[in-house]
Design a protein around this nucleic acid. Sequence first.
DNA 1: AATATATACATAATTTTCTTATGCATAAAA
DNA 2: TTTTATGCATAAGAAAATTATGTATATATT
Lengths: 112, 112
Amino acid sequence: MKSTNLYKGSLITIILKLLNEHDSMYGYEITQKVKEITKDELQLTEGALYPALHKLEAQGLLDVEVIKIGNRVRKYYKLTEAGTKETVDKLAELESYIRNMRALVNPKFRLE
Amino acid sequence: MKSTNLYKGSLITIILKLLNEHDSMYGYEITQKVKEITKDELQLTEGALYPALHKLEAQGLLDVEVIKIGNRVRKYYKLTEAGTKETVDKLAELESYIRNMRALVNPKFRLE
DNA sequence: AATATATACATAATTTTCTTATGCATAAAA
DNA sequence: TTTTATGCATAAGAAAATTATGTATATATT
């Protein structure tokens, strides 16, 4: 990632959600999609992305399929069933996080 | 902090905003205020909070005043002028973060 | 034809930020 | 009187990132 500290801890959520939406993606594709959606405001760094993908795979949340494009290799990742469940949890955590941060920084959102 | 990874990197923003709103607070008071606002969903840990306060003070963003309550000590922190400016920046970063994360996880929010 | 940029993966060293554990001490409640 | 709450602090370790490299092919540019 290349941005403010706030993105620390968000990478897994981002990866899972994009895979949830696009079914199958490879690493470089994920970096480009994030750049596109955030209009260059968030740039995933390879040093963060690849280890994160490996970790998710090791946890059984992603399956990987290696494809040769000409002489080059691509690794396509997709969610496992466990990965899909985890995505739901991570998205709920994000909503909770945003709700709490809004309440903390904006008294208007401190309801009931 | 005691919660999901998402809160990583948010502590400074939280501290600055609460001090911006309350003028002067001490460490323990900040932990209680955060608990109250988030209904126990976010608990600041002392191991994170106190070093963060010391760091902000060292950076010239906070001033400290030591008060004796009976035989006990409290350290009241308040924003310096630089601290007030930094608060504005941090809040803008948070809004940007939330906007980008919303766009990433919710295709509906991907407006030009 | 040569060179720069884009595509595509990977890992190691270091830094940042936090958790967990511990320590000291007083005040209030059970 | 013993637990809980108040109030500060720091050190060891873990987690997650940044930064710096490395390898290699494909495409654009000069």
